[in-house]
C-alpha cells in the first residue's frame, strides 16, 4: 500500500464524515423549518440570519446539560447504547459511490471509500445492527417505558427487514451484482432502476421509514403511550447522540435509495457536461446531483412526518407481515417472469 493511496482514502473519509455530520446537524434545523412551513408558522429564526446557527446552539446546549445516569441502571450498557447507535449510523456511508472517478495529477481517485463486492448486503447488515443501540439503551435504563420502546424497536425492525431484503432481491435479479459501484454505473444517464422496479422501490421506501424509526413508524418513541420511549431516561449528550443517529440514519437511507433506485450520481446529459468541464469538475457535479437527490429524500422524510399520524401497533404489524411481504414476494415473481420472457425474445 503506497502512501498516496492512504492519504487519498483518509481525505475521502474525512470529507464524507464532515459532510454527514453537517447534513445531520442541519437536518435538525430543516426539520423544524419544514414543520413551520407545513403548519403555516415561521420556525426557528432567532440564532443567526434566518436561524442558521440554531444547530450550533442546540449542540452546545446538549453538551452543557447535566447528564443523569439512573442509579438502578447498568452503567456500562447505558453508555454503550447511544454510542452504538451513533457508531452504526456512520458505518454505512463507506460503500456508497459518491461520484465517478476523478483525476488528480494523473491518478485515478475513486470517490467511494471501499468497493466490497457484497456492498448491498453490507448496507443491509449495518441497518440490521442499528437496532442494538436502541435495544441496549432501552434495557439498561431500567425503566418500563424504555423497555417497551426497546421491545417495540426490536420487533418492528425484524418485521420490516424481511420485505426490505425481499425488495432488494428483486433489484439484484435485475442488476446481477452486489457491488454498489457497478449498480451505480449501470444506471448511466437516465437509465435508472426506478423505471424497472417501481413496486420494489415503494416497498423499500416504506421499510426505510420503519428502519429509521421515523413517523408514521416511530412507535419505539411514541410519546403519547411511552413518555419518551427508549430514550426516556437519557439526557444531555447521550440524548443528543440518539437524535443525531436518527438523522444520520435518515441521511444514509436517502443515500442508499438514491444510489439503488434513482441513478446515484447519474443525470441526463452527464456525458456532455463531463466533456465540457473535465475529469475533476464533472464528477464533482455528479456528486452534487447525488446530494440534491439525497436532500429531496430527506425532505420527503420530513414531509411525511408532519403530514401522516402514527400507526397503531397492530396496524404496523399487519402492514409489515400481511401486505408488504406478500407484495415483495409477488414483485420477485413478476420480475423473474419478465426477465425470463425478455431473455427468450
Amino acid at each position: 500500500m503506497e502512501l498516496a493511496f492512504i492519504i487519498e482514502k483518509f481525505a475521502l473519509i474525512l470529507v464524507i464524515f464532515v459532510i454527514s455530520l453537517t447534513v445531520a446537524a442541519y437536518s435538525t434545523l430543516a426539520e423544524r423549518k419544514i414543520a413551520g412551513f407545513l403548519q403555516d408558522r415561521v420556525g426557528p429564526n432567532r440564532a443567526g440570519p434566518g436561524g442558521m446557527f440554531q444547530p450550533l446552539a442546540d449542540g452546545l446546549k446538549m453538551f452543557f446539560k447535566e447528564e443523569i445516569i439512573p442509579t438502578e441502571s447498568s452503567k456500562a450498557l447505558f453508555i454503550l447504547g447511544p454510542s452504538l447507535a451513533l457508531f452504526t449510523s456512520f458505518l454505512g456511508s463507506a460503500v456508497i459511490p459518491w461520484g465517478q472517478d476523478i483525476e488528480i495529477a494523473g491518478r485515478q481517485v475513486s470517490l467511494q471509500i471501499t468497493d466490497i463486492n457484497v456492498g448491498v448486503l453490507y448496507i443491509f447488515g449495518v441497518v440490521s445492527l442499528g437496532v442494538y443501540g436502541i435495544m441496549i439503551g432501552g434495557w439498561a435504563s431500567n425503566n418500563k417505558f424504555s423497555l417497551m420502546g426497546a421491545v417495540r424497536a426490536a420487533s418492528q425492525s425484524i418485521s420490516y427487514e424481511i420485505p426490505l431484503g425481499l425488495s432488494i432481491i428483486a433489484l439484484l435479479m435485475l442488476t446481477n451484482t452486489l457491488s454498489m459501484k457497478e449498480i451505480a454505473e449501470q444506471q448511466h444517464g437516465i437509465n435508472w432502476n426506478i423505471f424497472y422496479q417501481p413496486l420494489g422501490f415503494l416497498i423499500f421506501l416504506i421499510c426505510s421509514f420503519a428502519e429509521t424509526n421515523r413517523t408514521p413508524f416511530d412507535l419505539p418513541e411514541c410519546e403519547t403511550e411511552l413518555v419518551g420511549g427508549y430514550h426516556t431516561e437519557y439526557s444531555g449528550f447521550k440524548m443528543g447522540a440518539y437524535m443525531f443517529a436518527e438523522y444520520l440514519n435518515m441521511f444514509l437511507a436517502s443515500a442508499v435509495m438514491s444510489t439503488l433506485y434513482f441513478g446515484a450520481y447519474n443525470y441526463p446529459g452527464m456525458d456532455w457536461v463531463n466533456e465540457m468541464t473535465g475529469a475533476v469538475i464533472g464528477p464533482l457535479i455528479g456528486m452534487a446531483v447525488l446530494m440534491l437527490k439525497i436532500f429531496a429524500f430527506i425532505f420527503l422524510f420530513m414531509w411525511v412526518r408532519w403530514t401522516i399520524p402514527r400507526f397503531r401497533y397492530d396496524q404496523l404489524m399487519n402492514l409489515g407481515w400481511k401486505i408488504l411481504i406478500p407484495l415483495a414476494i409477488a414483485n420477485i415473481v413478476i420480475t423473474g417472469i419478465v426477465i425470463t420472457i425478455i431473455d427468450k425474445l
Partner: peptide
C-alpha cells in the same frame, strides 16, 4: 447478529 440475536434479546427483554 442482525436477526437471530435480535430475537434472542427481544425474548429475554420481554
Amino acid at each position: 447478529m442482525g436477526a437471530i440475536m435480535v430475537l434472542f434479546l427481544f425474548v429475554l427483554m420481554l
